[in-house]
Every structure is written in C-alpha cells, then in structure tokens.
Design a protein around this nucleic acid. Structure first.
Lengths: 238, 238
DNA sequence: AATTATAATATTGTATACAATTTGGCACGG
DNA sequence: CCGTGCCAAATTGTATACAATATTATAATT
C-alpha cells in the first residue's frame, strides 16, 4: 500500500528494519505496551543499534511505537478512545475514497472489484473467515487505489494499520458478519451505477458501523490462546 | 499543534533537530529540491551526525524530505499534482472538523472563535496581510482543536504543513482575499447557529476554492526576491 | 573529438565506543 | 514499619571511527 510508483530498491538496513518491525507489530508479535529493548532486537534482526534506532524513530512518527526519553521505547498501547477518533477520520476517508473511485476508476478496475466482491460473498457463505478478512481488506485497498490519490492512500494505510492492530486485541462479534456483507452489497450496487455520492455515503456508513462493532469488541478483550500473544494472523473486517 | 496533552520535556537532540529542520523547511530556509549535506548541517546545529540522521528519517516519514540511498537527502520537491491530491483530502478533513467542532466545542471556545474572526476582519480591512494570514491559520487550528479529535488534528497538521510550503513558492492571487473573507463570514454564521452540517459543508467548500486558487498560483511561481529563497515568512490563507 | 573505462574523492551507511540518565536496591533515619 | 537519600547496574543518547557506494575527474581507446 505504501509502495510508491517507482520500484526503487531500498537496500538500507534501517528501511528493512522499519518494515520488519512494522510487520512484527501489526502481526501482534510485539503486542502493545511491551518494551522494545534495543540490543535484544539488534541481535534478533542481525543488525547494529544505529539502523534499529532510526527505524524506531520512523515507527514513532507513524504512531506505532512510543519513545520515552531515556526510558526506552514501547509498542504504542491501543487506546479505545483513540480508535474512536481514528474511525471518525476513517469514515470521512472512506467516503472520499468511494466518491473519487467512482470518478476516476477505470472500467477494468470496476470489473476487478466485482470479481473480488463475488469472491467475498463466496467466502462468507463458505464460512472461511480468514480468507474473507483478507479479501475484505483487498477490496477496500482496491477502492482506495481507484481514487487515484496518493495522499489519501498513504493516510488511509496509516489508519488502517492502527485499526488492524486494535482488532487483533478484540473478539469480533460474529453477528456483525452478515450485516457487513449486506453493506458491501449496498455500496457495490452504488459502484455499479457509478453513483459517486451514494457510494461514498454508504462506505462512510459502513465504516461507522464497523467502528461501533470494533469499539464494542474492544471492551471485551480477546481470550489469549496458547502462549502470550493473541491470534497470529491479523484480520481486517469492515 | 503537535504538542500532546502532557508537557513532557523532550530534551533529546534528535527531537530538537526534527523541530529545527522542520521549521527551516517550512520557513523556506531550506527550499525544495536542495540537497541536505549531513556534515554541514551538523556543525550548523552543533550536533553529531547520529541525531541528525535520525531526524532526517522522521522528516522523510512526514514527507518533508526525500531519502535517496547512498545519494543523500533532498528537501522534498513540491509537486502541484500532489498538492491537488492533498487538498482533496483536506476538503474532507475541513468538513469533518467543522462538523465535530459544532458538536464538541465549548461555548467559551466559540466565543474565542468569534473574537478571532473579528480580528481577522479588522486585519483584512486594514490590509495587514501578514497578520491576517497568521490569524487565519490560528482560526483553522482552533476549529480543528474544537473537534476534539487528536487523530484529525495530527493528520490536519501534516497536510497543512505541506500546503504551507507550496504556498511559499507561489504568488497568491490578491483578488481571492475578499472572497476568502466572505467565505469565513459564511461558515462563522453557521458556527453561531451550531449548524454542524452546514458549517462542515461551507468549510469544505472554502477549502476547495482555496485549492483552486493555490494550484493556479503554483503555475505562476513567485518572483525570487533578493538572494535565492522565496519569501521568508510562510503564510497561510484560506 | 567523442565515448567509455577507470581511479580518486566525497558522502552516505553501519558499527562500536563513550557519556548521560533512569531504575532498582540498600542502608540509614524517622 | 515506612520514608528518604544514596549508590550501582542497566539502558538509552550521542559521538566517532570504519566500510560501502555514488560521483567526478582523468585518461585511454575508437
């Protein structure tokens, strides 16, 4: 999602470290609140402290880690209030994405979107939860990409990451699944009509309802299965 | 704008360097496209390369500088197309800010906003351009603050910074000044009625019209007065 | 003369060493 | 028994030294 147009190879260690650490945080491998000892991660990643520290600064700028001067870095805790605020912005971004996608998306992209939606429905009917979540994320990413707006894309990706992390901590209400699919049917119908306003409105509404469900789920923390970390596979459901 | 609730002292050099460099870039002291030689800036800021490099990584994450591996960093160039994309998002953020400000702002804050607006009108009538621009920025910042949404506030600040930098490169159309003031009158009236929808819509419209003016101004680059850098004082006009 | 190959230089990327600050424990005093 | 002050250990912050890569200049060849 953050990959720019030009496929330049970033061969620097600190850049690799950023991606590695971000993945570890989003995967829940580094759960919120844990301290991030530099030396330990250094030998774990096989790099020195310098590039690791540079990576930590970047992740701090992204809001994924929290730097406390002379007290070490911790993985940023997930604050339900902050998630609520993020969703308020996300609603607006989803609306904008839907509107712009209608205006700027190519017919080929809309066709692809239709196929992805069909796949989503199939996976829902089959009860393939993990596959559904992945397809769902891809659909929203596709809509954002069709908006042809790099600034929107980058901002969206940042918020999506934080929301993803919040979800990995919460037991998601299964009852919302059917409702969510229905909402997807709704804005897909608007997309097929190229109704920009309606598509945007339905996407925003979809986001808002998702927010309610997620925040409610956050009040009932997920049961920690197995070892120490929540579910290994991060999932995104809208 | 970025100051968190708790007034913790950040005494680390790299944090100071970030703020210093960001100010230098936004002030136009470091114009877009120029290379950023590390050693030179180091002795200029009186620090070592390590904290400076950490600062550069953060600014790169913010999109203010561009890192080219083994080729040095440059101040991110201002791409008119990117500015257009940013404004598209900004419109949505302004709308959201206006709506939320109506919902969450205190009466005291609305009173303060009124006073700021009066000041703005006075400065416009007096033709005090620089003072007007400053007040204008403060007004928009106040509205965003009244929205009570840290995620919105941070995202808004990031985009506002990029827009500010673009403007310092462009001769702004003076004819838009009166129009802009009229638009301020418009959404202030909506604010006084606490009409959230209308206030948001008028703010978004205001942002959209500003975008048109700014992008047009970008096509006629500012005359470089004096030495090499554009106007020293960055201004914000909406 | 133009172009390409090559080497010297400069700048960035990384690692390590040193300094400063925080944290935890322990002794002392209340 | 609890609070305060001090000391030691550990970890972070910074500086410097070394390694790798890109740029520039030079020179040789076509």
């Amino acid at each position: 999602m953050k990959a720019p147009a030009r496929p330049i190879r970033r061969a620097t260690l600190h850049h690799s470290a950023v991606e590695e650490l971000r993945a570890m945080i989003l995967d829940g491998e580094l759960p919120p609140g844990v301290r991030v000892p530099e030396v330990q991660l250094c030998e774990q990643l096989g790099i020195s402290r310098t590039p690791l520290r540079e990576a930590l600064r970047v992740l701090s700028s992204e809001g994924l880690v929290e730097l406390r001067p002379h007290r070490g870095a911790i993985v940023a805790p997930v604050d339900p209030g902050e998630i609520g605020a993020i969703f308020e912005v996300m609603d607006a971004l989803e609306r904008l994405a839907g509107t712009l996608a209608c205006r700027n998306g190519s017919d080929a992209e809309f066709t692809k979107l239709d196929r992805m939606h069909d796949q989503l429905v199939t996976q829902h009917e089959a009860g393939e939860r993990a596959a559904y979540f992945l397809t769902n994320r891809q659909i929203h990413a596709q809509i954002v990409a069709m908006a042809r707006n790099p600034a929107l894309e980058a901002t969206y990706a940042g918020f999506a990451a934080k929301i993803l992390r919040a979800r990995s901590l919460a037991n998601y209400d299964t009852g919302r699944w059917q409702e969510s699919v229905d909402e997807h049917e709704g804005f897909m119908a608007a997309f097929r009509r190229r109704d920009a306003e309606e598509a945007g409105a339905l996407l925003a509404d979809h986001s808002r309802r998702t927010a309610v469900a997620v925040i409610q789920a956050l009040r009932q923390p997920a049961v920690q299965e197995g070892g120490a970390v929540a579910s290994a596979a991060p999932m995104d459901v809208d």
